[in-house]
Design a binder for these strands. Structure first.
Lengths: 393, 393
DNA sequence: CCAACTATATTAATTAAATTAACTAATTAT
DNA sequence: ATAATTAGTTAATTTAATTAATATAGTTGG
């Protein structure tokens, strides 16, 4: 059933506009909001009044005047509500309690010992949530929900993890089980997509219309945000960037194809390539070690990372040509080697890109560091709170 | 300035819903529209009344009853307005006059003799339009505009062709010049994107939410349609599919990079590959000839086309993984060899795709044949007429 | 063939929410 | 102190959807 043109639509569109204006420009006065959004002052006033009643917005001390009544400044009421965010990766489950501004008040981490079952996985999840709930004095009814950024293939309608490749699990009914246990809103999303949303929400990109976030770690995933909304594709599996073929005659990948981006740039691939180059292939290296050796100035390892950057650059150029995003934000474990990888990425893109327009794409490393995905999980709920409109027409 | 929640928005959302319902389900009664869109009967009635006044919709003989008043059936009034569509390719400029249903009433074609200047190019365009205008009895004020599907890089805001590679032209102010000349609405769009829109409009795909159309001819371009709207990207150059790197160590492309999809699958690339295989590399083959030899059953040429299909399949798999569209529609000159290429494409995709979900992507050849791009040009104006809403929030 | 029923469509009254215009409030500049 | 200026609210108006009632035009069953 599609979204009709109703009074509620009209109102919720304006509510969204105002709320987002406050969020991105606080402190801001009612009059300024009216000016910048071209909504009329009475519309702004009535909606702001409601937002204050809902405790999403608060007033503060008066602002400055240049010859007239002083404006009352408005802010998001950051500590009115809280969200639990979970990053369920292949190695660890991390959890945070965050306020509406993305400030993290509590943290937990648990390792995942393999092999594992659906039940054990779910109980680790529950444990982490209980730990957070117990460790805070915040009233539990101020917590509006739990967002889960899950690696692998996810069905966001049912909140099920369909395939969790490294854990070797399938069909984990995350949402059902956690809703039953905690009786609270649960949102489940793919980790790269969650990261993309978190980046657009907390990354300080302002009005960026289209953004792609790429997570380069054990796997390589991407999330696409357009007009502040995640792009899912028809079956909800868009963003599988790691298995983009960039070398059809290249080495074989886990997935069975040849020359996937992942075979060059995942943490494991980097370590393996380094191992081969150094001829100590028996000693299993980790990606982290490659980075550390490079930092010590070992040119062989620096080269390996430089090469990695080049290949990422090729993949990103494909992405730029296809989607022409305003921004690309890079995150994940591999990007800790930013200092070695990033110059090669940027250089490669500038070399390969076709048009001067495409050259304008900003490619940056996330400012959110390791919390990018966690904050993404948090933002899954904030989107619902701030933009209750889905799709129109 | 963003779209606010206004009464006009409310109305134009409903107008769009109703108009599209009629378009995709005609003949249909007011009551049925109300049922299927969950709009109320009075809302449907008042808006339909306006649409009839605007001559976009007409009533017809009564429908069937099953125990009650007979419904009045509604139709799009196909012959109330007309549109001129132009396909400005690198070799020819084609033009059509179409009614609202996509029925073509007039056609023109002109070759483009190279070298050419901006002025000559524009005057060929004008000539074609004048030819169409002269050859029809339709009143000129029933023609609501001219849509131009232009190859190369286009700025849709100003209606300028920024780069027309094969013609070796730049900054052709198409919209300005034609508006001046004909004093009518002009829309300029990239050809692959126009084709994508035409496909979603006239291709009989019904409610397909996300669709990618790929044009494989002299170059390879793609257009992405989401929720009935074209995706342009930040600088309006999204869809550059032909220069996707799929073989980073492959042969060098016009663009300077190695292993672009185009180096395998454009008409010229196919002909060249065939030439090499046959060892008569001196005789310049055309793509068309390769197809004809294959049709005669020559296995060498059949192989060349089969290989081409494989590589297209690799590129499309990348696209499916990244965008997960509901449908991919293939068109362009190369797809005339459908019978040899398509099996290889489908086979390759099924082999390479990662998940069962992605396997559901429908990959088909356009039903619109050579008119796909022309009807795309036409649809540029129909979108404005039928869905006057841009973007919300 | 007529009464009872059913489905379609319109009209009238109501309601939601934006807009316009007028007004109050608070401050700076003269 | 007064005029001018800006912020914000209140009251009246307008738009367009919704609800309820009614008219329209049939079908069906006795």
């Amino acid at each position: 059933m599609q979204q009709r043109g109703t009074f509620q639509l009209m109102k919720s569109v304006n509510r969204s506009i105002i709320l987002n204006k406050i969020r991105t420009s606080e402190p801001i006065s009612r009059a300024q909001i009216a000016k910048e959004t071209s909504l009329t002052p009475p519309t702004v006033s009535t909606i702001v009044k409601e937002l204050i009643e809902q405790r999403l917005v608060r007033e503060s001390t008066l602002g400055h005047s240049s010859g007239g009544r002083k404006p009352t400044m408005l802010h998001i009421n950051h500590s009115s509500f809280y969200v639990i965010g979970i990053d369920a990766g292949p190695e660890t489950i991390k959890g945070v309690l965050s306020d509406l501004s993305g400030e993290i008040l509590q943290r937990t981490v648990s390792p995942i010992n393999k092999p594992i079952t659906n039940e054990r996985f779910l109980s680790i999840l529950k444990e982490n949530i209980y730990t957070i709930l117990k460790s805070t004095e915040i009233s539990h009814d101020q917590i509006i929900g739990i967002g889960i950024a899950m690696h692998g293939v996810v069905d966001i309608e049912t909140g099920t993890s369909l395939v969790a490749p490294i854990l070797n699990l399938r069909n984990i009914p995350i949402k059902d089980v956690l809703e039953e246990e905690f009786n609270i809103t649960i949102k489940v999303e793919n980790d790269a997509r969650a990261m993309a949303l978190g980046e657009s929400w907390f990354g300080g990109h302002g009005e960026a219309e289209s953004m792609v976030a790429v997570n380069i770690g054990r796997g390589v995933g991407a999330g696409v945000v357009m007009n502040g909304k995640l792009y899912h594709g028809a079956q909800g599996i868009a963003g599988e960037f790691g298995h983009m073929t960039i070398d059809m005659n290249g080495t074989i990948c886990d997935c069975g194809n040849r020359g996937c981006l992942q075979t060059f740039v995942s943490g494991a691939a980097i370590a393996e390539r380094a191992g081969k180059q150094i001829n100590q292939s028996k000693v299993a290296l980790t990606g982290k070690e490659v980075f550390e050796y490079a930092q010590k100035g070992n040119p062989l390892y620096m080269d390996v990372l430089h090469e990695t950057g080049k290949v990422i650059g090729i993949g990103l150029t494909n992405l730029i040509h296809l989607l022409n995003p305003q921004k690309i934000v890079l995150g994940g474990g591999v990007m800790k080697s930013e200092e070695f990888i990033m110059p090669a990425i940027l250089e490669t893109i500038q070399q390969r890109v076709l048009t001067t327009e495409a050259r304008k794409t900003e490619v940056i490393v996330t400012h959110l560091g390791e919390d990018a995905t966690l904050l993404g999980a948090v933002s899954l709920l904030l989107v619902e709170l701030f933009n209750p409109i889905k799709e129109i027409g």
